[in-house]
Structure formats: structure tokens, C-alpha cells
Design a protein around this nucleic acid. Structure first.
Lengths: 105, 105
DNA sequence: TCTACATTTCCAATATTATAGAAATGTTAA
DNA sequence: TTAACATTTCTATAATATTGGAAATGTAGA
């Protein structure tokens, strides 16, 4: 990952509604959740929701797929992991003893 | 971690200069780096640097300590790990088989 | 086709954030 | 105690992001 993409992903997550959307999708797993259900669950009006979903998708953190008239979004776990690696890499100049371990998802 | 702090930490990292500062401090480990050295290394003028360092410190991601007339900043690895846990927790509703593993720092 | 429904796009108002020069604060060494 | 240095605060300007109503687009079923 290069810095521009990392900044974009972090900016996408750095907003309350979007962070809630993303965490809900992380919890949901690969099967994903329809846009409408997200808006219902989180109390976000359609136009605002669409804006936030677009922002997260543009950042690569979530992926839409169409099923009939529904658009179903799911978290991109590989992209999430790339972001985490980007944040933590070269930690403590390689001296792992200085660093706390990170749990798996 | 609760959502307000997570948003604040992500917002702190969602900016090119600050992300570069943080990654440099992650690489440096516990010993940290003086403010001036960070500005020198990254080409950021003093007032701008101070603004960004304050933002990162306020978010809990870095900690300052004073040594003579230098202020030395270091990454807070525990806080970084809390943020990562917050992002990834409850992944795939507990079905770990769906999830890619996350590397240690 | 017509109607209902899901989602997105358009738009304008509002709020937040980044930038860096100049001045202020605090520390060290001569 | 004076001069040099490190860092922060003050300030104004410029740039960017958030919000949601209304209208548009696309899909499904009667």
C-alpha cells in the first residue's frame, strides 16, 4: 500500500457514520448487508448514506454487488489488513520485544 | 475503546504529514524522535509540525516527553493496538475461517 | 404498462481542517 | 544576563467535507 491510499482509507473510516457502517459490515462477514438495511439500522437518511457508502467504496474498504433492486455491501477484509500492515510495519525498527502483539480478527 | 476516540485517532492518521510522522515514530520505537528532527526529516515548517503533533498527541497516538529544550515524541503502541482491535473486532460474526490473519507488529 | 420500491445524483448551506508567517515561551550555554 | 535555539501559540486564509431534501435512475411485480 502507498501513502495516498492509506490516507484515503483512514479518512473514510474517520467519521462516525462511516466507522459504524464499516464495523457493521466487518461483523456481517462476506455475505454483506443491503444499503437500505444499513440505513435502517443506523438511522441515516438515504442521500447521506449513499454519500458515505460511496466514500468507503472509493477507498476500497467495502465492495458493492447488485442483487435485483438491492445493492449489497460487504467489507473488503484483505484491504483492511493491508491498511493495518501499513500502519504497523517496521515497528520498533524490527525489535519485536518492544512491541505488543496484535490479535487476529 | 469507544467510537469517539476511534474516530479521533483515525482522523489524526488520515492526513499525509501526520501519517508520515506516525509511521516514522512507529519505526523509531520507544526511544522516540525530537520534534525538530521530525520536521527536518519530513520537510514540515515548525508551526505546521506543531499543529500536527498536537493533533496526534490529543488522539492518544503519540506521547511527548521533555528533555532539556527538546520535546521528544514516541508512538503509543498500546493505543495503536486498541485502534486495530476496534476496527477488526467481531469480524465475520466470529467465523474466523472467513477472515485473513493479521500480522504482528 | 403502471406503480411501488431501492438507491443514487444533484445541489446549496454549513461546518471543519490545513497551512505557515510572526510573535511568544521556555531552555541552554557562553 | 545575553544570545542562540527548540517549540508552541496566535492568527488569517484557503481548501475540503458533511448534511439531507428533492429529483432522477433503475428494478420488480401486478
Amino acid at each position: 500500500m502507498e501513502i495516498g491510499m492509506a490516507v484515503e482509507a483512514l479518512a473514510a473510516l474517520a467519521q462516525g457514520s462511516r466507522l459504524s457502517i464499516f464495523r457493521l459490515l466487518v461483523r456481517a462477514g462476506k455475505q454483506g448487508v443491503a444499503a437500505g438495511a444499513l440505513g435502517e439500522e443506523l438511522g441515516i437518511p438515504p442521500a447521506t448514506l449513499s454519500f458515505h457508502l460511496k466514500t468507503l467504496a472509493q477507498a476500497g474498504l467495502i465492495k458493492p454487488r447488485t442483487e435485483g433492486r438491492y445493492v449489497i455491501y460487504s467489507a473488503d477484509f484483505a484491504e483492511m489488513n493491508k491498511l493495518i500492515v501499513y500502519l504497523t510495519e517496521h515497528c520498533c525498527a524490527g525489535d519485536a520485544a518492544q512491541c505488543a502483539p496484535i490479535n487476529k480478527c
